[in-house]
Design a protein around this nucleic acid. Structure first.
Length: 476
RNA sequence: GCUCCCUUCGUCUAGCGGUCUAGGACGCGGCCCUCUCAAGGCUGAAACACGGGUUCGAUUCCCGUAGGGAGCGCCA
C-alpha cells in the first residue's frame, strides 16, 4: 500500500511554526516511504478564509522546501460531495434531521454542565417523527452515533485511546443552511483522497473519536492516525505571538535559514538517538512515528540560533552570499543594502566570508558583520570604538600608518610583520595596536582578524580610514 | 465542570526491568588558544514530579496524587 499523507491547514492566517512542523512530519513520513503528501486547504469557513492566507501558507511551505504532490484540494469546492455523503447516511438511517433551536441547544449545554454530564445534545430529535417538525425551521443533520460501547483510536503516537460512547453526543454533519461541517468534510475528503496516514496536531485527538464514528457509519476504513503534541512557548504555556507563534515568514525575516529551521523543527518532539544534525536525506531516512514523544515541547530560540549558526558555517561562501541577496528582499532597508553591493564589495565580502560566517548566528548578524565593507568613509564609530580611540590611541594610529605606508606588497603576512615589529619596538602588546586599528578600520571593537581586514580593504582604503581617525586628533 | 492526553538536567531529548555512579545537544561556569569577537579543544554544575504497589530488582510496568496541556460550537 502506498503511503499517502496530507497537510490540511485552514487559511485563516499565516503558516505558523506548529503547522510547519506538522507539514514537515507529513512530508518526511511520505518521502521516507516512497509515498505522497497531499495538500488540502480547509477553506469552508468563508468568513475567515482569505487568499492572502493561502498565499502565505504556500509561500511558507515553499521556503521551507516542503513540496506537496499534485494540486492543492480546496475543501469548499467539495461541498456537493459532502452533502451527497450525508444523503447516503440519511438513507441508511445513520443520520437524522434535528430541529432544535439555538436557544434549546444553549439550554442543553447549560444543563449538561450543571449536571456534570459530558454529552451536550440530548438526542431529542434522534427518534422523533420529522412530521412533528416546527413549521418553517430548516433542520441540521446529525449523526446517529452509537449510544453504548466504546470508540477506540489506535494512535501511532498516543497509543490506544478509548472513549465511552455514552459521553459522545450526536454531532452535526450538515448545518441548517445545508453547508457541511468540518468534522464531516475532513472524513469525506481524507477518504476520497485515499489518505492512509493522518499526522496532525494533538488538538485534534478528541475530534478523532467523532470522526471515527463517521467512518464507522459509512463503513469506511479508518486511516492510521498520529496525533503529535503541540509546541508550547518558552514558559510552557500555549504558544502565543509573543513567544514564537509567528508565521514562518517572520523566521525568514529574522535571518534563519530554512535548513536550520527544518532541523530544529524535526528534533522538536522527535528524536533519533543522540543525533542532532540531520541532512534532508538523513531526516527522510530516519523519520518514523514511534520515535515521536508524547509530551509537548517548548520552543527555544537559543537552540534554533545555534543550529542556524551551524548551518551558516556549513554553507559555501558563494551560496551564503546568494542567500543574503534573497534575504534582502525581506529586510526593511534591504533595497538600500542591495544598492551597496557593487561587484567590488561583493568580491570583498566573499573574501572575508569564511571568517564572517563564523561569527554570525543569523543572516542579520552576517550583514552586520560585513558593516565595515558596506559603510562609507569616514566610517561611523560605535560607542565602544569611539571610547577606545583615546588621544594616545590616535597617536598610535599616526605612527602605525607611516609604518603601513611602507608595506609592499600588501599581504596579510607583510602587514602582520609590520604591525608586530612596530608593537615590539614600542614595547607594546599587539592588542594595544590592533584595537585602535580595528576601531579605525571597522568602526567597531570586534571584527575578523585585523590583518585580514587590512587585506580585504586594501592599502589605500586602509590608510585613508586610519587617517580619518588619526587626523581628528591633529584638528583638536 | 466534563472527556482525553502528558510528566528524565533551565530547554530539546536518549533510555523501551538489571549495562544508570542516568548519555547527548543547546544554554550556563571554568581553563586553553588569542589582536577583538567568534569558532575550536578540554572541563564543571545541572534531571528520573510525589506517594503507593508489582518484581529478586524500577527512570523503565500498574494505580493514585499533584502539576501541565488539548478538546468540549449548526469554528476549523
Amino acid at each position: 500500500m502506498t503511503v499517502v499523507t496530507r497537510f490540511a491547514p485552514s487559511p485563516t492566517g499565516f503558516l505558523h511554526i506548529g503547522g510547519a512542523r506538522t507539514a514537515l512530519f507529513n512530508w518526511l513520513y511520505a518521502r521516507g516511504r516512497g509515498g505522497k503528501m497531499l495538500l488540502r486547504i480547509e477553506d469552508t469557513d468563508r468568513e475567515r478564509s482569505t487568499q492572502a492566507a493561502i498565499d502565505a501558507i504556500l509561500d511558507g511551505l515553499n521556503w521551507l522546501g516542503i513540496e506537496w504532490d499534485g494540486d492543492a484540494v480546496y475543501q469548499f469546492a467539495r461541498a456537493a460531495r459532502h452533502r451527497e455523503v450525508v444523503e447516503q447516511l440519511l438513507a441508511a438511517g445513520n443520520a437524522y434531521p434535528c430541529y432544535a433551536s439555538p436557544e434549546e441547544l444553549a439550554q442543553m449545554r447549560e444543563a449538561a454542565r450543571a449536571q456534570g454530564r459530558a454529552k451536550l445534545y440530548d438526542g431529542r430529535w434522534r427518534d422523533r417523527d420529522p412530521r412533528e417538525a416546527p413549521p418553517g425551521v430548516k433542520p441540521a443533520i446529525r449523526l446517529k452515533a452509537p449510544l453504548t460501547g466504546e470508540t477506540v483510536i489506535e494512535d501511532q503516537v498516543q497509543g490506544r485511546v478509548i472513549w465511552q460512547n455514552e459521553n459522545l453526543d450526536d454531532l452535526v454533519l450538515l448545518r441548517s443552511d445545508g453547508t457541511p461541517t468540518y468534522m464531516l468534510a475532513v472524513v469525506v475528503d481524507d477518504h476520497d483522497m485515499a489518505i492512509t496516514h493522518i499526522i496532525r496536531g494533538d488538538d485534534h485527538l478528541t475530534n478523532a473519536a467523532r470522526q471515527k464514528q463517521i467512518y464507522d457509519a459509512l463503513g469506511w476504513p479508518v486511516p492510521m492516525m498520529a496525533h503529535i503534541p503541540l509546541i508550547h512557548g518558552p514558559d510552557g504555556s500555549k504558544l502565543s505571538k509573543r513567544h514564537g507563534a509567528l508565521g514562518v515568514d517572520a523566521y525568514r525575516a529574522m535571518g534563519y535559514l530554512p535548513v536550520a529551521l527544518r532541523n530544529y523543527l524535526v528534533r522538536l518532539g522527535w528524536s533519533h538517538g543522540d543525533q542532532e544534525i540531520f541532512s534532508t536525506e538523513e531526516m527522510i531516512a530516519a523519520f518514523d512515528l514511534p520515535q515521536i514523544g508524547r509530551s509537548p515541547a517548548r520552543f527555544d530560540f537559543a537552540k534554533l540560533e545555534s543550529l542556524n549558526a551551524h548551518y551558516i558555517r556549513q554553507t559555501p561562501d558563494a551560496d551564503l552570499l546568494a542567500a543574503v541577496d534573497r534575504f534582502l528582499l525581506y529586510l526593511p532597508d534591504g533595497a538600500a543594502l542591495a544598492a551597496k553591493l557593487t561587484p567590488h564589495v561583493r568580491a570583498q565580502w566573499l573574501q572575508s566570508m569564511p571568517s564572517l560566517k563564523e561569527r554570525a548566528k543569523t543572516l542579520i548578524d552576517l550583514i552586520d558583520g560585513a558593516h565595515f565593507l558596506l559603510a562609507d568613509r569616514p566610517i561611523p564609530l560605535d560607542d565602544k570604538a569611539a571610547a577606545l580611540l583615546t588621544p594616545d590611541a590616535k597617536g598610535v594610529l599616526i605612527d602605525i600608518s607611516t609604518e603601513l605606508a611602507k608595506v609592499e606588497p600588501w599581504t596579510p603576512e607583510a602587514t602582520e610583520h609590520a604591525v608586530r615589529a612596530f608593537a615590539e619596538r614600542k614595547g607594546a602588546k599587539l592588542g594595544a595596536v590592533a584595537q585602535p586599528l580595528r576601531a579605525a578600520l571597522t568602526g567597531r571593537t570586534t571584527s575578523p582578524g585585523i590583518f585580514e581586514v587590512l587585506t580585504v580593504l586594501g592599502k589605500a582604503e586602509s590608510l585613508a580610514r586610519v587617517a580619518d581617525q588619526a587626523g581628528s586628533q591633529s584638528a583638536r
